[in-house]
Simulated assay, not measured.
Amino acid sequence: MISAAEADFAKFIQPEINQHSFSPAVLASANFDKSLFNSALYDQHDVYCPPAMYCASPKRQAEYFAGRYLAAQAMSYFDIHQFTLRADAKRCPQWPSTLVGSITHTNDYAACITALKTDVAAIGIDAQDMINDARVERLQSRIIDKAESSLLSQNELSPALGLSLCFSAKEAIYKALYPYVQQYFGFSAAKLHSIDPSKQTLTFRFDPALWVLHNDRNTLQLNYLCNDQRVLTYLILPASMK
């Protein structure tokens, strides 16, 4: 019989581990109910809470906890337990020396993807709530240029879905490359090159000056998943492609 605390926690978050669709990476993901969050969960589940997070809003604490809790679930698949997942000054998670990983969250969804460095050179994941029609016009010029917009329209994607995918994909690219580049780069560094809705893939050309893994290609292919509420994009670069 489960305890009352376990039952309450199950109401807050129920992680799912996907070991197949993202191979050789592992994805831990979950919806969570931030209204049920209690800061005591950090200690109860051995999730490291940085000092600055104690001053954050309950909403931000819930999002941070969900991401780091799922990171622990993903790392346990690789037999890494009770690892203190800290972040650098730029909030980039500092993974165990044997792993690469990436974390994302929205207001009520979080995910973490991890893989062995021997299998994967770089990895990035990003979830975004669908951009509504009212915000598309205001945000479009900040995220994509006219050529990218034209390419999306040719694939008959709605403006909201197309922009949401590009926004998410460029964030995923940043998360994958930043640990190696160690410098900020904006949305213009990666340009949408092609999209295949049937395979749910996006291909981007990127600035070669950003690439430090000596890949001889100048494109990156990401996969995506989407529903009416959100989009999820992820980049997995195999180690054999270094």
Rank of each mutant, 00 (worst) to 15 (best):
P96K: 03
P179W: 00
A4G: 03
S29V: 11
D8G: 04
I113W: 15
I103A: 06
A160M: 01
V100T: 15
Y184S: 12
F204G: 07
C226S: 13
Q14M: 12
L232Y: 09
T233G: 01
A87S: 14
K191A: 03
L235C: 07
D126H: 03
Y109R: 12
L85W: 13
S150G: 04
T233D: 02
R217F: 04
A169Y: 02
S39M: 08
K11H: 15
A30E: 08
K175F: 03
E16T: 14
A10I: 08
E171Q: 00
A189T: 05
A239K: 14
S240N: 06
F167K: 07
N31S: 12
V26K: 02
S23N: 08
V120A: 06
N38M: 00
A7G: 08
V26C: 03
E6T: 00
A189F: 03
D119Y: 07
T219E: 05
Q229W: 00
N215W: 10
C112E: 01
P159A: 00
K170R: 05
L70K: 13
Y109L: 04
C49G: 02
A160F: 00
A134N: 15
N215C: 14
S102N: 15
A66L: 09
P51C: 01
A190I: 01
E63Y: 06
D216W: 00
N132V: 11
A121R: 15
R138Y: 01
W211D: 07
I173N: 04
D129F: 04
S150Y: 13
F185D: 07
K175D: 06
D216E: 01
L157P: 04
Y234V: 08
D126Y: 02
A239C: 08
Y69A: 06
P24D: 00
L235I: 07
